[in-house]
Design a protein around this nucleic acid. Sequence first.
DNA 1: CGAGGAGTTGATTCCAATCAATTTCGGTGG
DNA 2: CCACCGAAATTGATTGGAATCAACTCCTCG
Lengths: 228, 228
Amino acid sequence: MQEFKTHNPKSHFCLFSELSREQIASLRLQEIDKVYKKGESLFNEGGYPKALYVVYKGIVKIHKYGVNGKEQITRLASAGDIIGYRSILNGEQYSASASAVEETRLFKIPSDAFLDLLKANSDFSMKVLKMLAGDLRKAEKQVIDMAQKSVREKVAEALLLLSSKFGVNEDTAALNSKLTRKEIGDIAGVTTESAIRTISDFNKEQIIEIDGKKILIKDVTKLEREVF
Amino acid sequence: MQEFKTHNPKSHFCLFSELSREQIASLRLQEIDKVYKKGESLFNEGGYPKALYVVYKGIVKIHKYGVNGKEQITRLASAGDIIGYRSILNGEQYSASASAVEETRLFKIPSDAFLDLLKANSDFSMKVLKMLAGDLRKAEKQVIDMAQKSVREKVAEALLLLSSKFGVNEDTAALNSKLTRKEIGDIAGVTTESAIRTISDFNKEQIIEIDGKKILIKDVTKLEREVF
DNA sequence: CGAGGAGTTGATTCCAATCAATTTCGGTGG
DNA sequence: CCACCGAAATTGATTGGAATCAACTCCTCG
């Protein structure tokens, strides 16, 4: 359990980074290094939360089905992110589903251990408060994006998210993303066809380069200029 | 200060409802019963937060400007709601503006008093955590609504929000809402013209009744059926 | 090697934004 | 009190962007 003390400070891992040995023990970590294969589901909308998930490798999509079954991906969780804390906090059913988009490793913390620590440790709870406040800010930005932006802008935004979440392969300079075109559309809030067409446009304009299903971002600046 | 101990338990007033006399004193309430007139601004996007606002009468809109200056209302705060806590938590600039849509009365709590209480009182901080988790859930629902719903559905949703926030006049059975058509559109995330046309459609279909700028919801069930 | 899922492309439709013109309303000063 | 002004509301015409529908190709995986 050393590793999550020495992680990227920007990530949610820092949630646990200042805990004492006893406090970490009190978390009663479960299923350490549990592996979820690509496509496997962590939990589903409507289920009751039993544990908090802490990702330390891979990517998990948090998604929800809207009108006429169209999927919307609300969040991508990668190393350092925690999943399922919201439902634990208000004790309600999951309002979304979570599943691995690539092989993912994580461990679990029982809900009550998490709640106990929140009550006992005010520094910890301040960190969670900050995290929630940050997530809320992002969500509200997303509301406006969805309401006002064009397909082109939303797809550009989605690609930028992918590059921040998946990073870039050092050799090929391509996104390490295994998301399908449909999933990119589900992030952007557009149809699969619109996502494909826009990605193809970006390709023609040399902003990105397509190599099979790999996407290579050739000009981040141009892509960032799209989103305003 | 009695009044906010005996308030609607569903509201955020209950945030403060279990505090001791000393704890309430520690909040160093400022500008008790401060009045903001219709249209007055509480704070603006980009400013730094100095205090938390607790509304106990009236309505405040939290809004943000998106692309090409189009306004989006992200939240309506009414009696019992608190405003500006998010920016206090993460110590950043306001990410949205707030202004009174009708005469509003509120008091303020200095940022540091709020933060101190959060650290000192774990019950209080649990309540804030729950509130944030609830707000986040609403925001994510809104993301999907904006991405997937039609103008008609979004306007219906906005009208239902109004009826829950403003309540209904006992005599006229009309919404006690002083929002303009533009503002209803800004909540729904549609243009003013689309909002007007949809409201007019609902009128023709006897779902609502229009009396000047007053709106009377004649058939809540039908309106609720619109949003699915 | 077959099958099905993923990706792609083209044609068509239609919803909602935009543009434009009028009417109505609320407030305010003469 | 009323006329007037600007803001808000309304209505119509037009446009355009993106969804939908449909057909086809290309992988990839059992």
